[in-house]
């Protein structure tokens, strides 16, 4: 595979940026860094031959989720600005701890890999002929109802949460 080093570079970048996104004391920068992580994940998805999922990731996660985060932060910012710094642990301390955790986790996974486990996922022959269109629209029946219900739950929750109370009216 020619793209081996590009894949590894992207994965390393994803880990580093997500460490910074989690540990940054300014939440708005954390949200923007999360958008950057989503962008890198969508590039990885393109390279893993999942273009539809990559487009979803790019439009929804990089675009919509970042916009929602920024709007939530701007809605709550006046209160936040008046408070003391909420995160007690300092950013440098967090970053050091996170990189240590990543190193320890990588070491344990490396030890686990020494056991020569067969990592290759097994797909049966029937599944290999299925296209994305088939599996999205033709093969799914009951779970589409579930997906629609999840979306309706979200809409219902937003309507309930943002409803004006009697006192506000």
């Amino acid at each position: 595979m020619e793209n081996l080093y590009i894949h590894i570079f992207l994965l390393a970048l994803i880990v580093i940026i997500s460490v910074f996104a989690v540990s940054h004391y300014r939440i708005i920068r954390g949200a923007i860094l999360l958008g950057a992580v989503s962008f890198l994940v969508s590039i990885s998805l393109f390279m893993l031959k999942a273009p539809i999922a990559a487009m979803f990731e790019l439009s929804v996660c990089t675009g919509l989720i970042t916009v929602i985060f920024i709007s939530v932060i701007s809605l709550t910012n006046p209160v936040y600005a008046g408070q003391k710094k909420i995160n007690e642990m300092s950013m440098v301390k967090k970053i050091i701890i996170l990189f240590l955790i990543v190193a320890v986790c990588g070491f344990f996974i490396y030890l686990f890999d020494e056991k020569n486990i067969n990592w290759i996922p097994v797909m049966n022959d029937a599944q290999k002929t299925v296209t994305t269109k088939d599996s999205l629209w033709n093969l799914r029946h009951v779970d589409l109802i579930g997906q629609a219900l999840i979306l309706l739950t979200g809409i219902f929750a937003v309507v309930v949460l943002f409803k004006k109370g009697k006192e506000e009216k």
Binding site: A50, F56, V60, M123, S135, R140
Partner: peptide
């Protein structure tokens, strides 16, 4: 991708998003 069938994986990813 490595199992040879990215189409099924795309479904799961879309639902998860």
């Amino acid at each position: 991708y490595f199992g040879g069938n990215p189409e099924i994986a795309q479904n799961f990813i879309i639902v998860m998003i």
